[in-house]
Design a protein around this nucleic acid. Structure first.
Length: 933
DNA sequence: GTGCTCACG
DNA sequence: GACGTACGTGAGCACT
């Protein structure tokens, strides 16, 4: 205790709800032997014990928020609307904390429709009225309005008391004026609006000058500063609403009269039983010792030793010796139930599902493996067939003995949703979807692949085999070793059970061991917040997007493909006629020979392989030198569209759902972006008119529309913000045309004389900045001499001088650490930054510069996706998020809800980060993706 | 399996 | 002044 306790006050009102959250975040993670997280409960129990002993508190009541909405939501529906859902590890602790209150035999109070703060205000008022002193045990600033006149506060985490001087220090006014200050300043945590542009400092100054809020608002016209004056006049009503939100209700119809908050009558056996159950050894010892000193006869309850040992193994990241693996094949219900019971005792279980294909929306489950401690894992076959039987063998007797799927579901279901048992998967997005198809939900869930990505993104891959080798020194059995590869590959349901056991159980085992390591490292490397608030919640959001899939008009694609094909035949004939001989137009090698060896065209470049380059930029340069070139360009474009889009996309439509289900990799890129595969729906054409047609085949179902919302210029806005380039920041704040402004500044052209061409050059420079500009690259992009490009860059850096400092700072940070950091603290590793080879070094430097920018944009989008998903859920919206294309989100929504959904999505995207420049998101919708822009 | 080309942001 | 270049992806095709 760092400062003396207040002198024997009478009534202690403990803000239980406030304490839970603060203790959870202030205390290191801690789990009971069975794996239930208990750090907040532990902090709470200790705090109560301290109040009762050190403070000799004779009358204590603990007060909680009721779960339901409060009267404040009726005044202002968005009140506390931006709160995150509590972390999964906190959820089971709410009930345990209430148990703690009962174990200490204290009154536990809550009332629907009111916050804990209102009950505290009410009891404080009643106590004051009868001359009783009050100590509010809380550090919540919202309670500071109650301080004074016999009421003080005690901050249990900082162990300091809060009286008038401390309140004045915080708010700059006496406690009776705190609400007026809060009404003006607002509160971003509780989503109290306040008056824009006014913070606590200004608010205090105004209130001290004018006396109170109403007087201030009435005389707002007298304020000298024009912005402040206008804001106050315009937002007077917001201030009044804010005051209603922050003012605590002192007349709550409490159901327990203050007289009944009687001094406690301790029940020592109840308390010791509780502490033993929670395995709070130190606290239990202190309590029993004290009780014995008081002359009571106390049994010291035993802690559950066996579970503690099992848990120690499950949670210990560094087993002394290599663990011997003991894997069990589970073929009957009693055996399964033994494993489920073990998982429940330990509170942590790693799992993995085996399926007959890698497409989660259509595949069938084949088996599940579980691991509860390193080396202790099992495999539960569910749909294996006789490996020797032919493909059409339907003979039931030939199937190996296994638990039926229904039995399995019934048995495992409760475990998968048990809030006190953490489920761990590697790439849980897949397992989540497979189990969802069976009607099974999984929560809470941790993902070792995402943990690894948060820790080591960009330095290596995050597949399990690779991680097992890096971190555990284990060479795991690969899928190919079990199922073969190529033509001889078999599905997992044909793998003999002994080999399936060895493979599948090992996967769960390795997952558990990786989790133990990563859990510690996330804390040590300060990456827990990133993982917990961004990547982990995204798992479910993206699983939902993949499962939903998008509707594609197969007929439209087929027609387009045919049209493209016919045109290609004509073009091919034309090209071969001009070439003077038939050749394979699809072969760059043959084409190069035709153009540069046979037709002897000028301007050819060679690749390092010695072959001629025939890429689009070369063809563009020699476009006018021969009529064969335009024909080749057209053929190339159509060939690409037909093969990659019209033809391939039709094959991706899943029979079962009639839709296309892409797969998003959450842990693949070096910058934090997602990537999309099988098919890649992040590179659907848009830049040319012919290409854009493909997007007309991406459609909404009957009655629905596709809604597209995209960030405007997000990466350039990020540059303006993190490099703090004043001119760019001003331009974005004013909503100016950013490329035109750049052109005017760099080329000295007045805005009025701007031409399309000059603006286009400036646009290329702006992109160059994002990529870590080089004269060579810019010259190539614009088709100008390198000397000219150098001059542009020089002019740019003179006009926007802050950029040079930013680039130098980024490079030196990368040299020192080997990575750069994004806005949300994601590490973006860059290899080769300290290399001697200048080419490789410059490459790494550009990567570093780009990584910070692209990575920050990716962070913002990840956070936006989480927030949008939550906001839509909260609003009860029927909209479904379908696609993400780096700065764009696509939804399917009933036409009647398009406008409302667009508003929610835009708002959430724009508030996903607070930069020094506004974030802007634009929305559009229509029957197809082409129409949504 | 690797290289080239090209679709997207 | 070296040294090859814009940043980040995935897919289809030709060719080894």
């Amino acid at each position: 205790m760092t400062s003396p306790a207040p002198a024997h006050p009478d009534l202690y009102l403990v803000d239980g709800s406030g304490f839970i959250f603060r203790a959870f975040h202030a205390l290191p993670p801690m789990t009971r032997g069975d794996g239930v997280p208990v750090n907040a409960v532990y902090g709470f129990s200790n705090m109560i014990y301290k109040l009762l002993t050190d403070f000799a508190a004779a009358q204590v009541a603990v007060i909680f928020d009721a779960k339901e909405e409060t009267f404040r939501n009726k005044i202002y529906p968005d009140y506390k609307a931006n709160r995150d859902a509590p972390p999964e590890e906190l959820v089971p602790q709410f009930a345990l904390i209430r148990e703690s209150v009962h174990a200490f035999c204290l009154p536990c109070l809550e009332l629907e429709g009111f916050e804990a703060d209102d009950l505290i205000a009410t009891y404080a008022k009643q106590a004051k009225a009868r001359g009783q002193k009050v100590v509010i045990v809380s550090s919540d600033k919202d309670l500071m309005q109650l301080v004074g006149d016999g009421v003080t506060m005690w901050d249990p985490i900082k162990a300091r008391s809060i009286a008038e001087p401390e309140v004045f220090e915080k708010f700059g006014v006496t406690p009776d004026k705190v609400v007026d200050v809060q009404a003006l300043a607002g509160d971003s945590v509780d989503n109290v609006p306040g008056v824009p542009g006014i913070g606590i400092k200004t608010a205090a100054q105004l209130i001290n000058e004018y006396g109170d809020l109403e007087t201030l608002l009435a005389r707002a016209g007298e304020i000298k500063q024009p912005k402040r004056r206008e804001s106050l006049i315009e937002h007077a009503e917001k201030a009044r609403v804010s005051k209603l939100l922050v003012k605590l209700d002192e007349a709550v119809p409490v159901t327990t009269p203050i007289d009944e908050l009687r001094p406690r009558e301790p029940d020592s056996s109840k308390l010791t039983a509780y502490l033993a159950k929670m395995e709070f050894k130190t606290l239990l010892n202190r309590v029993t010792t004290r009780l014995r000193e008081e002359g009571q006869v106390v049994e010291h309850p035993d802690l559950p030793v066996e579970t503690a040992a099992a848990a120690a193994r499950a949670l210990d990241p560094t087993p002394e010796a290599p663990v011997e693996a003991r894997y069990e094949l589970v073929q009957d219900l009693p055996a399964l139930q033994r494993w489920i019971a073990r998982a429940q005792r330990v509170g942590v279980v790693a799992f993995d599902t085996e399926t007959d294909s890698l497409t989660p929306c259509v595949c069938g489950i084949v088996g599940v493996s579980l691991a509860v401690a390193p080396g202790e894992a099992c495999y539960i076959p569910l749909c294996h067939v006789n490996p020797d039987a032919g493909g059409l063998d339907l003979d039931q007797a030939a199937k190996p003995q296994q638990i039926s799927l229904d039995e399995f579901k019934t048995a495992i279901g409760p475990l998968l949703t048990d809030p006190s048992v953490l489920k761990i998967a590697h790439n849980g997005k897949f397992d989540l979807q497979v189990l969802q198809c069976l009607g099974l939900d999984v929560t809470p869930i941790d993902d070792t692949m995402l943990m690894s990505y948060a820790l080591d993104g960009g330095s290596h891959g995050h597949g399990m085999d690779e991680l097992a080798s890096i971190h555990l020194g284990l060479k795991t059995t690969t899928f190919a070793e079990v199922c073969g590869s190529g033509k001889a590959q078999i599905t997992f349901d044909r793998v003999p059970l002994d080999r399936a056991l060895a493979y599948a159980a090992e996967d769960a085992d390795v997952t558990l061991r990786l989790w133990q390591l990563f859990k510690q490292r996330l804390l040590a490397d300060h990456m827990t917040t990133l993982y917990e608030t961004i990547d982990r919640p995204l798992l479910r959001v993206v699983a939902g997007m993949e499962s939903a899939g998008i509707l594609i008009d197969r007929n439209a694609l087929a027609k387009m493909g045919q049209k493209f094909g016919e045109r290609m035949v004509q073009l091919e004939a034309e090209v071969q006629k001009l070439a003077g001989r038939p050749f394979n137009l699809g072969s760059p090698k043959q084409l190069g020979e035709v153009l540069f060896d046979e037709l002897k065209l000028e301007g050819g470049r060679k690749l390092k392989s010695g072959a001629w380059t025939t890429d689009a930029s070369v063809l563009d340069e020699i476009e006018d030198s021969h009529p064969i070139i335009p024909a080749i360009q057209s053929w190339r474009q159509l060939a690409k569209l037909k093969a990659t889009y019209t033809d391939a996309l039709q094959e991706e439509i899943q029979q079962k759902t009639g839709r296309v289900h892409t797969s998003y990799a959450l842990a693949a890129t070096s910058t934090g972006r997602l990537s999309s595969t099988e098919p890649n729906l992040q590179n659907i054409p848009i830049r040319t008119e012919e290409g854009r047609q493909i997007r007309t085949a991406f459609i909404a179902g009957p009655g629905n529309v596709l809604l597209s919302v995209d960030y405007s210029q997000i990466e350039l806005r990020i540059v303006a913000d993190i490099a703090n380039i004043q001119a760019l920041r001003d331009a974005f704040t004013n909503g100016d045309d950013i490329h035109a402004l750049t052109a005017s500044q760099v080329f000295g052209v007045p805005m009025a004389d701007m031409t399309k061409d000059i603006r286009a050059r400036a646009k290329a420079i702006n992109f160059g900045i994002i990529y870590g500009i080089s004269a060579f690259g810019l010259a190539r992009q614009l088709g100008i001499p390198q000397s000219e490009a150098s001059a542009y860059i020089k002019a740019y850096l003179e006009r926007f001088s802050e950029l040079r400092d930013y680039m130098e700072e980024t490079k030196s940070f990368a040299r020192k650490h080997g990575y750069v950091l994004t806005l949300l603290g994601r590490k973006c590793h860059v290899a080769g930054i300290n290399e001697k080879n200048p080419a490789r070094r410059s490459f790494a430097e550009r990567q570093a510069i780009n990584g910070r920018i692209q990575g920050t944009a990716a962070d913002i989008m990840r956070r936006a996706m989480r927030n949008v998903s939550r906001a839509l859920q909260r609003a009860g919206s029927p909209a479904q998020m379908l696609l993400q294309v780096h700065d764009e989100l696509v939804f399917e929504v009933p036409e009647t809800h398009a406008e409302a959904t667009a508003a929610i999505v835009r708002t959430e995207m724009e508030r996903a980060a607070t930069l020094g420049v506004p974030l802007v998101a634009e929305a559009g919708w229509g029957k197809s993706w082409a129409d949504a822009h």
